[in-house]
Each structure stands twice: as C-alpha cells, then as structure tokens.
C-alpha cells in the first residue's frame, strides 16, 4: 500500500542527482511539448525519448510496471473511445447504428493516446526519481511560502499513515461483526459511518499532536528558516536545463516560425 503511494526509490541515476528545480521545470517543458506537438510521428519520437529516460532512471521494475500498466490502460481506453465521440472527417470506415467510425478520427485517437502517454510517463519519472521533500524544497526555493511548502509535505507524509489507520479501523469494526460490504447501498453507507468517525477523530488527534510537536521545536519563531541541505545548481544541472529548454524551443520555432508540420 505504501509502496504504491510513495513512488520514489533510492537509486543512483543521473536523474536522481539532478537539481529538483531543474527536474520540475524539465517535466513542465516536456509536458508543454507533448501538448504542442500535433502530429503522430514526433509524438511517438517524444514517447520513445521519455521511455529511454525511464530506463535511464533505473526505476525498480515493479514500480515502473505498475506505472506503465496504468498509462497503457489509459492509452488503450483513449484509442478505443475517441472515434466513438469524434465523428468528423472522411472516409467513413464503417457504421455501427448511428455511429460513423472515420479514419481520421482513429488517427486522432491514437495521437491523443500517445500524447497522454508522454504526459503521464514524464510525471511518473519525476516521482520515481525525486523525494517528496526535495520537490517541496524546490517549490519553496522557487518562491512558494515556506509554511505552505511544509503543509504540502506534511500531507504527502501522512497519506500512507492515514491509509494504514483506515485499514486498522476497518479491521476493528469487522472484529465487532460488522459486514462492511453487505446489504443495500444505504445500509453500506451507514456501515461506513463506523469507519469515517474514528478516521476523522484520529486525524484530528494526529493534527493536534503534530501542531504541538511543531511548536515545541520552535516552528514559527521566524518567518523564514535556514536549511541543512541547500540545493545548488551544478554545471551538469545547467546542461540538463539547457537541453530541456531546447527540447521545447527548437520544435516550437520549427512549428510556429518556419511552419514545419509537427
């Protein structure tokens, strides 16, 4: 359970060592690129490049498989559903009742699927190679208020904990002969009250304790704070940044200035 929520795994690839700000920016640029490209071939090339990055990130096979399973399902779904809703263009290949399946619509479906595939995979790579606290640190360095950053990282931190608490509550109520998934919809919703109330109460108790803990460690004594680990750009980070910027800039120039159909 925690394995799926915390996607990060400790590995030593160059993507792990990259400055989190550069990674965040690169992922944003590649996402924009995926939505800028509208032709199938460049999108397939982009997907190939992103998959290469995934391979280079040395992500554990289990996690990569889990992520790709989700992405591939999404891609298949888009490919299948797109022609059903997009009936423009000719030639019409075949009709099912009132539905006309056209050839251009099928290609548009495939193109969108590849685009979403690029988009999702690139964010997965970010999560695979960056610790949540580094991501938050990057956001704070980029100007996010520190206390918002802390709130964000605390919520990330407590997602798995909260999941375990809910499992434990469900077990406790099952041990009191509660059949959670039995009966009508209303019956089942009522059953879940016995899970929801303890869950909310323990979340509130946790929040209370956490607030005290933070205060007892002098949280809020100053508006800003110092950091044990400063993040600094190294030459390799600048190279990566330049590559990411060019990866968007060159195709954008080609497409919008020189009119290359991309």
């Amino acid at each position: 359970m925690t394995g799926l929520l915390d996607l990060y795994s400790e590995k030593g690839s160059f993507l792990h060592r990259l400055d989190p700000r550069v990674k965040l920016l690169a992922v944003l640029l590649l996402s924009v690129l995926a939505f800028m490209l509208s032709e199938l071939l460049p999108l397939v090339l982009l997907l190939a490049f992103i998959l290469l990055l995934l391979a280079l990130s040395k992500s554990s096979f289990g996690k990569a498989f889990f992520a790709l399973k989700f992405v591939v399902r999404l891609m298949v779904l888009i490919t299948l559903l797109w022609p059903l809703f997009d009936r423009s263009g000719t030639p019409v290949l075949f009709s099912i009742g009132p539905l006309d399946i056209t050839e251009p619509a099928i290609w548009r479906g495939v193109t969108s699927a590849v685009r979403i595939g690029c988009f999702a995979t690139v964010w997965y790579i970010l999560m695979f190679t960056t610790q949540q606290r580094d991501l938050v640190r990057a956001l704070v360095k980029l100007g996010l208020r520190f206390d918002y950053g802390l709130a964000l990282s605390i919520s990330f931190r407590f997602i798995p904990t909260f999941g375990l608490t809910i499992e434990s509550i469900k077990d406790a109520q099952r041990a009191r002969a509660l059949e959670l998934d039995k009966g009508s919809f209303i019956r089942r919703s009522k059953n879940y009250v016995s899970v929801l109330v303890p869950a909310v109460v323990s979340a509130l108790r946790t929040a209370d304790t956490l607030a005290l803990t933070l205060q007892s460690r002098a949280y809020g004594a100053f508006r800003d704070r110092t950091y044990l680990r400063e993040i600094r750009m190294r030459p390799s980070d600048y190279v990566a940044l330049a590559v990411a910027v060019l990866a968007l800039l060159l195709p954008a120039l080609a497409k919008y200035v020189y009119g290359v159909p991309l």
């Binding site: 434990s168 509550i169 406790a172 002969a177 009250v193 929801l196 303890p198 109460v201 323990s202």
Partner: peptide, 21 residues
Amino acid sequence: TPAQMARVVGYAFQNPDHQLF
C-alpha cells in the same frame, strides 16, 4: 467471514480510538 468468526473470537484492539464512533 470475520463477522461470523467474531461470535466465537472477540478481539480487543490496542487503540480504542480505532473503533469508538
């Protein structure tokens, strides 16, 4: 099911806050 087994085996959890509602 756990509900049927609960008639024979009662389990008091460590943290009472995980069941009171």
